[in-house]
C-alpha cells in the first residue's frame, strides 16, 4: 500500500508574528518555521499504519512551496517517511490550487490513502482535504481522531464533531484529515535522522505536472489582532472578587 502525506511549512504559531509593510504577507525574517503540527500528526499516523499493517507500506511526503520546504520534508523523512516530493512554488496558493496540484501528484503516484492535517495553522483554511476529495471523487473523513483498518480495504474512522464522536466507514482510496487527538507525533531517532540525510527529495515542477494556476482567492490585507490589555495591580482577593462582579455586570 502507498500512503501519501502532505507536509506544509508554516511559521511556528507560538512566535510573535509581524507583517510586511504592504500588509499582505507576514515578515518571515528571523521567524522559525516548522512542519504544520496537524501534518506531523498525519505523518505519525502513516508510520503507525506501516508498523501495524500486514503488508508493506510506502510513505511519500509531499511539500509544495519555497526551497526551504526541503527542511520540512527532511523532518518527515527523519520521522520515518520513505521518500519525499517537493513541488517548487514561491507565492501564495489558495486551497483550491493546492488541491489542484495534489490531484496531479496523486494521479502520478497512485496512493490508496492520502493523510493530511485537518488544516494548516497559518491559513487555518481547512478546505484542501475536502476539495481534493471532491476533485478525485474519493471517500473522505475529516477531523479524524481514530483510524482502524478493516478487512477488504475498508476503513473505520472516528471523527470529532461538536456533538460527539461520529464513526464513518470508508472504502479505499480515501482522503483522511487528522485532528489533534489522533496521536502524539514522535521525535526522530538518531539512526532515523542519519538515514533521512540520504533519502531522496524529488523535485517536480508544476509545468511537468500539467497544472496551471487558477487563483480563486487573493489576500488583500492582513492586520494584527488588537491586544490592548489593561493591567492593574489589585490589593487583595476581595478587590478581585469585586472587580469580577463589576465586569460580569457590564458585559
Amino acid at each position: 500500500m502507498k500512503i501519501l502525506v502532505t507536509c506544509k511549512r508554516v511559521p511556528d504559531p507560538d512566535q510573535k508574528i509581524r507583517l510586511q509593510a504592504d500588509s499582505r504577507e507576514i515578515d518571515s525574517e528571523n521567524l522559525p518555521y516548522i512542519l504544520n503540527p496537524f501534518d506531523a500528526i498525519a505523518v505519525e499516523e502513516s508510520l503507525r499504519i506501516r508498523e501495524t499493517h500486514g503488508e508493506p507500506v510506502e510513505i511519500v511526503a509531499i511539500g509544495i512551496g519555497v526551497e526551504e520546504c526541503d527542511k520540512t520534508l527532511r523532518t518527515a523523512l527523519a520521522m520515518g517517511a520513505d521518500r519525499a516530493v517537493l513541488i517548487p512554488w514561491d507565492s501564495f496558493l489558495d486551497p483550491w490550487n493546492v488541491s489542484g496540484i495534489l490531484e496531479k501528484i496523486i494521479q502520478r503516484e497512485n496512493p490508496s490513502l492520502v493523510l493530511m492535517g485537518k488544516q494548516a495553522v497559518d491559513g487555518d483554511s481547512n478546505q484542501t482535504g475536502q476539495m481534493l476529495a471532491a476533485r478525485l471523487g474519493w471517500a473522505q473523513a475529516t477531523f479524524a481522531s481514530r483510524i482502524e483498518f478493516q478487512s477488504g480495504g475498508k476503513l473505520k474512522v472516528e471523527r470529532e464533531t461538536d456533538s460527539g464522536i461520529e464513526t464513518l466507514g470508508l472504502n479505499l482510496p480515501a482522503i483522511i484529515t487528522a485532528d489533534l487527538r489522533l496521536n502524539e507525533p514522535r521525535y526522530a531517532s538518531l539512526p532515523s535522522i542519519m538515514k533521512a540525510r540520504k533519502k531522496p527529495i524529488e523535485r517536480i515542477e508544476t509545468s511537468e505536472l500539467g497544472w496551471a494556476p487558477d487563483p480563486k482567492v487573493e489576500i488583500i490585507n492582513m492586520s494584527m489582532p488588537q491586544t490592548s490589555r489593561k493591567k492593574v495591580r489589585l490589593t487583595d482577593i476581595s478587590d478581585l472578587v469585586a472587580r469580577i462582579k463589576e465586569a460580569l455586570k457590564t458585559n
Partner: peptide, 25 residues
C-alpha cells in the same frame, strides 16, 4: 543575532532536532 524581542520561553524543539535525538538516545 537573535531578534530584539527574542523570547526564550517560545523556543521550540523540532521533531527531527539532532540534539534532542541524542538526548533521547
Amino acid at each position: 543575532r537573535l531578534p530584539d524581542d527574542f523570547d526564550m520561553s517560545l523556543m521550540k524543539v523540532a521533531r527531527d532536532d539532532f540534539n534532542a535525538a541524542l538526548l533521547i538516545h
